[in-house]
Every structure is written in structure tokens, then in C-alpha cells.
Amino acid sequence: MKLGSRLKKIREEKKLSQHEVAHLLEVSQKTLSNIETGKTVPNILQIAKLGAIYEINM
């Protein structure tokens, strides 16, 4: 499973909206959508923040 697909699955399991996660990640909802679809690769800081938001070890 690709990173974006995995992040989307985790977000949905946590019952979080793209809007909520984008706000916590300090990016636009479109940027988060692009990450989840694989159009954009998150930088190391975004990966660390996603780990904290989703309470997982990245």
C-alpha cells in the first residue's frame, strides 16, 4: 500500500475529516488531498506531524 493510501485509511479509521487534519497539519485541504492521492509527497516535517496527529510511529 502506498503512503498516501495508508494515510487516508488511518485518517478514516480515526474518524477525522480532511479539513480537520489539514488544519492540524497547517496545510490546505487540497494539499492533504494531494498527499493522500499520491500527487504530492509530504516533507519530513509533515510526516512527523501526521504521526503525531494519527498517534502512530512514522
Rank of each mutant, 00 (worst) to 15 (best):
Q29F: 05
L16A: 02
P42E: 02
L45I: 14
L25R: 09
R6M: 13
Y54Q: 04
A48P: 03
G51A: 12
Y54E: 01
M1N: 03
S17K: 00
S33V: 00
V21G: 07
L25E: 04
T31C: 04
T40V: 14
L24A: 13
S28G: 12
S17M: 04
H19Y: 11
K15I: 05
Q18R: 04
Y54A: 05
R11H: 08
T37L: 14
S5Q: 12
I53W: 08
V21E: 05
K49H: 03
G38P: 14
L16D: 02
A52M: 08
E20C: 06
H19W: 12
E55F: 09
L3Y: 07
R6Y: 15
H23I: 11
L16C: 04
H23S: 15
K49P: 10
H23C: 09
S17Q: 00
S5P: 06
V41A: 08
L25W: 11
I47D: 00
S17R: 02
L25H: 09
I10C: 01
L50Q: 00
I53A: 05
S33N: 02
E20M: 13
N34A: 15
L16E: 06
S5Y: 10
Q18S: 00
N57Y: 15
A48N: 10
G4Q: 01
T37R: 14
K9A: 15
K14N: 13
V41C: 02
K30G: 09
K49A: 08
L25I: 07
S5A: 12
E12V: 03
I47S: 03
K15W: 01
R11A: 05
I53L: 05
L7R: 02
M58V: 15
K9T: 13
L45E: 13
A22E: 04
L50M: 06
T40I: 09
S17G: 05
N43C: 06
G4N: 01
A22V: 03
V41I: 11
E20K: 14
Y54H: 02
L45F: 15
K39Y: 08
I35Q: 00
K30Q: 14
K15S: 15
N43I: 01
Q18W: 00
N34K: 15
K15C: 11
T37K: 13
H19E: 14
E12S: 03
P42Q: 03
L25M: 09
E26T: 11
I56R: 06
G51I: 11
A52N: 09
G51Y: 09
E12K: 10
T31V: 10
G4P: 07
E13I: 01
V41D: 08
